[in-house]
Nucleic acid binder design. Structure first.
Lengths: 98, 98
DNA sequence: CGGCGTACTTGCATTTTGCAAGTGTCGAGG
DNA sequence: CCTCGACACTTGCAAAATGCAAGTACGCCG
């Protein structure tokens, strides 16, 4: 399996990379992620569990039944890839059809 | 929708980015892609159609019922993102568990 | 004409994703 | 003490995507 395939096993599932992108701006709570991304709540919960298990993010307890999700070093290391993909996506949108 | 989400709409489906990665090494025929990637044939056919429609690759006729798939400029522009993701995936594999 | 290579398509089982509604817990307010 | 609301999920079920295996189409070669 290639390095790319290994990466996609971790962040290739739907919503996963969008969650990481959002967390690049700082720790976020569950409800914020859900509202900002518009992701289904059960999928979001599943992704957060998977990404935590993969060491991409961790839970940061705040108050009683409130916690935040924040990126680990491994998660922060995705910034370069996310920026590159974002630039590509933006460039593609800029062209009606090349 | 963010730029990243726009990118994922095009290359977020399973196998899509792996196809592009393979084509970065030059035009490939259907059978080669299938054997190298190990992707199911119906999915591969679907992806190739989608990626062609998105202007990421195009069909290059060779002999009678033989053609090759090659990247457009838009497809080649994914190189940076793919390299970045590949590096991340390789780095993650390098650590047993951080 | 019959078999071979190439590029797919088709039918159906399995898995993933999505929607809507429900559950558990804690703290504040009455 | 008891209810209510906020928050973070879970659960049940429908829809869509993915995967496997087998089949189809099309020319060329003998």
């Amino acid at each position: 399996m290639s390095d790319l395939a290994a990466a996609l096993e971790v962040i290739g599932a739907r919503w996963a990379l969008l969650v990481v992108e959002r967390l690049l701006e700082g720790p976020q709570r569950y409800g914020d992620l859900q509202r900002d991304l518009g992701a289904p709540t059960n999928i979001l919960a599943t992704r957060l569990r998977e990404l935590e298990a993969a060491g991409v993010l961790y839970r940061l307890p705040l108050r009683h039944n409130t916690r935040a999700y924040a990126l680990t070093d491994r998660g922060l290391a995705l910034r370069e890839a996310i920026v590159a993909l974002g630039r590509w996506g933006g460039a593609v949108r800029g062209q009606v059809q090349a």
